[in-house]
Design a protein around this nucleic acid. Structure first.
Lengths: 122, 122
DNA sequence: CGGCATCCACCTGGATACTG
DNA sequence: CAGTATCCAGGTGGATGCCG
């Protein structure tokens, strides 16, 4: 674990906020899909994720674009065509999350087990 | 990035859920504080985190205990004394999150900059 | 001291309908 | 196709007060 106590508490608050915005379900899934597939247009992205409302997809994509994680390219054609891909920054974030994905996959069973034991009265 | 596409989609959903519960602000902060300080009782934990309501502290601690991330020890004395410390599982999760903390700390400025640029009309 | 119970304001996210 | 706009149910989290 990093020792955030060693850094400015104001910075720590900013970092915490940043993590809060960045570490949500949809952001992580989009990060994962784009890291794997490269470039995707809106509807393909929706398909790849599965059961995400277009409201959340649009909203999350906007936030990620604003934060410099993805690049949005609009082709001025009819029908409209918009493509999304990770920026370098987005890619590095995906890599950072990798450790958490691995942890979750490896320890899923242990957590389920702990939960069952807890629920059984202990 | 791990290729979750290579694994069972049902497992992936479980992993996503697990990450969703585990990757929240308070969980990450508690993880960090306990990793650093070792063992703490309820009120010291509250102080160390700063501005967390005892409702959220209790709630988050229960969930973490249920998931096998922390160990809760009650000393049958008056006044009550309860201590919390990370389990081995909690420790490994902290380590996994380390990469995200580092990313956030390192790229905070870049994100802020991207956001400013975005807000200025681009 | 370390909670639990209650109330409540806010936000999140889904469903639906409409547009360039 | 790729959104925007609106409405609404449910969840989140803070404040407060009480208890063992």
């Amino acid at each position: 674990m990093t020792p955030p106590s060693a850094i400015d508490p104001r910075i720590e608050a900013l970092v915490t906020d940043l993590i809060g915005r960045v570490a949500d379900k949809w952001t992580m899934l989009i990060l994962e899909v784009l890291a794997e597939k490269g470039t995707l247009r809106f509807s393909r992205l929706a398909e790849a994720i599965g059961n995400i409302s277009q409201k959340m997809l649009t909203q999350t994509l906007r936030t990620m674009q604003r934060d410099g994680l993805i690049e949005r390219t609009v082709y001025p054609v009819v029908p409209p065509k918009v493509e999304y891909k990770l920026t370098e920054l987005g890619f590095t974030l995906g890599a950072a999350f990798c450790g958490v994905w691995v942890w979750a996959a490896e320890n899923l069973a242990r957590v389920e087990q702990a939960r069952s034991a807890f629920d059984l009265g202990d």
